[in-house]
Design a protein around this nucleic acid. Sequence first.
RNA 1: GCGGUCGUAGCUCAAUGGUAGAGCGCCAGUUUGUGGAACUGGUAACGAGGGUUCGAUUCCCUUCGAUCGCCCCA
Length: 431
Amino acid sequence: MQKLLKPRGTQDILPQDQKYRDFIWKIFEKKMVLQGFEKIETPIFERAEVFARPIGENSDIVQKQMFEVSRLGSSKNDNEEKLVLRPDYTAGIIRSYLETGFSGAPQPFKLYYAGPLFRYERPQKGRQRQFTQFGFEVIGDSASATDALTIYTVWDILKSLKILKLCSIEINTVGCELCKPDISEKLQNFFNSFKKMLCGDCKKRINNNNPLRILDCKEKTCQKIASSSPDIIDMVCENCKTHFSETLEFLDELNVSYDLNPKLVRGLDYYTRTTFEVVIKNVKERQSSLAGGGRYDRLAKTLGGKKTSAIGMSFGVERIIEFLKENNIDAPETSKPQVMLIQLGPKARKKTLKLMTELIKKGIKSFIAPGKESLKSQLHLADKKKIRFVLIVGEREVFDKSVIVKDMERNSQESINDGRLINKLKSKIKN
RNA sequence: GCGGUCGUAGCUCAAUGGUAGAGCGCCAGUUUGUGGAACUGGUAACGAGGGUUCGAUUCCCUUCGAUCGCCCCA
C-alpha cells in the first residue's frame, strides 16, 4: 500500500506550530476588540464572480489560480454556477456585507477575520496553495483618518509581534475611480513609446490594460524604463492628492514610521487611493511581503451594490511564523501538561484514573500513560515531555490513601494524603 | 505556466550493479517502587511505475512528492 500524502502545496499545521498561531491570533484579536471590530466568518467557497470582477478578469489569480469546487462526478455541462475556493478574503466579505444588508447598519462597519485561502500556484518558500490570512475591513468610511488609523493598526500589530524594526511599511496611492483610468492611459502611452525594449510580460501588460504592473517588473530594462516614468502621485487628481497627504500627516502625528514607495502597485484590481504593503527589510529576493492592504472604494459597486468606501488589510500567517522563527522570536507555550500521573499495578491504575478525572475537573492540565508498566519508563516519559510534577501511585499509596508528589525540576518529593492533594498541588503549581 | 536541485528507517545521514549501515528517536531490559548518564536487546527504509540487465536501491525514462528561483502574491 502506498502511503497517502497531503495534496501539493498544503501543510499539516502540527502541534509544535500551534503556539505561534495562538500567539499571533491573541495579539490580533485583542487589537481588533479594542477598536470595536467584530468578527465575521464567510464561506470557504463562493461563486466565481465574487472574485472575478473585483480582483480583475486579467489577473493571474482569476485566470489561473482558483480552485473550482464541484460535486464529485457531476457533469461539466450543467448550468450550475461555478464555485471556487476563495483566493481572497475581501471580496467575500463585501459580498456578505451587501447581501446581509449591513449597509443599512450604522457606519463605519468594522469586521475582522482569519482563515484559509486557496490559490493554485507552484509551492515555494512562503507560498502554499492553502495559506492563512487574518485581517480586517473598515466599511462605509472614506476619511483619510481611517487610512491612517488602518496603517497605525498594522504598525501596532507588527510592534506587538516584535518584528516592527525588521519590517518596512511601504505606502503609495493609486488614484480613485475617476483618475485611475487616466493614470492607466498615461502610463500606457508612456510605456508604448518604449515597447520594443520591454520584456514579453510587460508588453502584454500594456495591452491588458495593466500598465501599473510594469512599475514593479523585475527585469532590469523594464525597471530602468519604469524609473523614468512619471510617478503616480503626480498624476492623481486633486482630491486623491489631498487624501494622500492628509493620510501621511495623520501618520506623522501618530508617530508611525513608513516608507513612501511611488512604484508600489498591488496586484488586485480593486484597490483605489491608499495602498500599502509590509515587507521584510533588506530582502530583495523571495516572498518578502508579510502583509498588504489598501482602500477599495469601488469594490462594492463591482459586486452590484451601491458605492461604498472601504479599506482593509491582511496578514499572511505562515509568512509571519516563518519570519518569527528565523529571528528566534519565540511564542509562549500554551498547552504543556502540568502534572503526570504514574501508576504501578492494577489497583493503582484504577486510582490514578479516578484521580485524573478530578484533576481535570479542577483545571489542572494532566497527562497519563496507562499502557506503561514500569516506574522507570513512566518517569522517563514525564522527563521527555518536560512535565514538572509527577504523581506516583503504587499498591502502598492505594492502601495508605496517599499519593507521592515528585517535583522533577527540584528532584524532591513528598507523600500527601488524598484529601489534601488537590490544594497542595495547586499551590505547588503556582510557585 | 517556466527553470534548477533533491527523494534510503520517525529524524539526520552513509554505502553498494548481486536486495542496505550508523547516530539520534521510539519500545523493552540491566534482580524486586524513582527520570535526565552508561550498557544490552528490539523496532524500522531504498516515493511509485516502466525500461536496460542474469540481477537495480544504484543506470535510463515517466510520474508523484519535496525544495529553491521566475511569474504572481500573503
